[in-house]
Nucleic acid binder design. Structure first.
Length: 268
DNA sequence: AGAAATACCCGTACGC
DNA sequence: TGCGTACGGGTATTTC
């Protein structure tokens, strides 16, 4: 599932494979994948462009071309493949870029949730996003202040990309358990020390996800191992790794949430 | 205005 | 066995 750790890993791995190559052809195989211009405009705008670099912002993969920017969001089931030496399109392929020196970049996505954009100005595209949780300017006091400015339940707020960029459902559950906070706790009731614990937990959880090359759920597997180390996510009924109490599944903000009822009581 | 609900997708796992 | 249905992921859009 494409939360920040997998996107981080994919962008990191793609950069050396793609940087310096030129786009020879662009095939859009499912119209809705491209959220911005028409397929014809898209093809015209990327043909002949050189890939200058592959970067990440929030959960978006940013492919910097010589005079435009291809931005890709994998959503849940999307994947990016860099294939050497000829490629035959497969069932779920959505976008294929034929590159120089026999390299093919494939955006494949069984559930058709993934999206791609072609934008002139990545800064403008990314303006609505909140801070990067792993950056130096995201501090405990920044988080505490931001939490005070809302009175939403903690978990939907963590998932709001305008509040904090890059945390998805798995990492929200894992971080809240690590910080011993209830997903329904109103954000403005979080104390300064609890905010510091949450800050630490979000960063630790994402760092572990990156270290383990991301998490996979359902049948979608991209090589990551973090799914073997979940504390609460999709572990309903299994013992809490801290205290042994059975993990419970709740619905918070229309989403599944997994908690230890002993470690994460809802107080006040 | 801010927050909550809904729409978008489909492979899988269930119940009957 | 086959059919119908619920589920889940993240975000843009709509509604409250």
């Amino acid at each position: 599932m494409p939360e920040l750790p997998e996107v981080e890993t994919i962008a990191r791995n793609l950069h050396p494979a793609l940087a310096g190559r030129t786009v020879r052809d662009a095939r859009l195989l499912w119209r809705n994948t491209l959220a911005a211009p028409s397929p014809a405009i898209f093809k015209r705008q990327v043909m002949g462009q050189e890939i200058r670099g592959v970067e990440r912002r929030a959960k978006f993969i940013h492919i910097r071309l010589s005079s435009t920017n291809l931005i890709i969001h994998l959503r849940m089931s999307g994947d990016l493949l860099a294939v050497i030496g000829g490629y035959e399109p497969a069932r779920h392929d959505r976008l294929i870029l034929d590159l120089s020196d026999d390299m093919t970049l494939v955006f494949t996505d069984p559930r058709k949730f993934g999206r791609a954009w072609l934008v002139d100005d990545p800064q403008t595209f990314f303006t609505r996003l909140g801070p990067e949780p792993l950056s130096d300017d995201f501090t405990p006091s920044v988080l505490f202040t931001a939490l005070q400015e809302h009175k939403r339940a903690l978990k939907p707020l963590l998932l709001d990309q305008a509040f904090l960029a890059g945390v998805g459902n798995i990492y929200a559950d894992e971080a809240l358990h690590l910080a011993q906070l209830h997903p329904r706790m109103p954000s403005n009731q979080v104390s300064e020390s609890q905010a510091a614990a949450l800050w630490q937990a979000v960063r630790e959880t994402l760092a572990e996800g990156i270290r383990r090359n991301g998490a996979s759920i359902d049948w979608v597997y991209r090589g990551g191992q973090y799914q073997d180390h979940f504390r609460v996510y999709q572990r309903t009924g299994q013992p809490c790794p801290v205290c042994g109490t059975p993990i419970q599944r709740l619905t918070v903000g229309q989403r599944g949430a997994h908690i230890c009822p002993a470690c994460q009581p809802l107080t006040g």
